[in-house]
Amino acid sequence: MADRDRLTIELWILRYRPAQDEEPHFVSYTVTYTEEMSVLEALQSIKDEQDGSLSFRWSCRMAICGSCGMMIDGTPKLACSTFLRDLAPGPVKIAPLENFPIERDLVVTVADFVKKIESIYPFIMPKETKPVEAGEYLQTPAQMAAYEPFSDCINCMLCYAACPQFGANPDFIGPGAMALLQRYNGDSRDAGSRERLDLIHGEDGVWSCTAVGLCSEACPKLVDPANAVNQNKTNSAFDFFLRGLRKENHS
């Protein structure tokens, strides 16, 4: 492959600079790429060599920080784990994550998502706190397996960009937060299920979901957030009918 290094591809990038643009519009850039080059690297080469004003988020470059999510040819993807060779011959359309307000270019506003994540008590609330000297909270491998997949979430918000119900109702707590909720509610060391469930019995809680399932397709970490939502529909439904029987052990 003599011209292995001479491949070029056209990227259409949705640009929006609030101070100077009336509204978002696509701008075309052509980049030279190699087999192993990711979309993120292409964006970095554009920023370095063609237009230093292009804005996008990234950090780890290895699909663990969750900051480089964007719409690539209409699908929510991590730019650092999406390769140009799979998108050739192009042109490739790159846009900020769907369903979120654009801050600038490919950067979206995450404040609302962060608030949702914070709201579901994203930490273990043990039945009783023990002093450090008393040792660890033990757990069997089976108990760990019950929540482990949900703990793989990297908060990339791809599932939110894929979810039509979140698109229709931005107050919907959404798949990612439900995955995180299940990560703690499914943990044998935790005793906060009641508090967390109480947050999702409403219209904007788990019941906004209509089982579309695109969230689990979009998830780059195979977290299966749709499964977390479904489990909690069952939990919420049982609670709806059995709440009369439950012991009120918190005020």
Binding site: D198, L199, H201, G202, E203, D204, G205, W207, K233, S236, A237, F240, F241
Partner: peptide, 10 residues
């Protein structure tokens, strides 16, 4: 306060 329940579970 926790959000209002819906009757969706029925």
């Amino acid at each position: 306060r926790p959000p209002k329940r819906t009757i969706a579970p029925i």
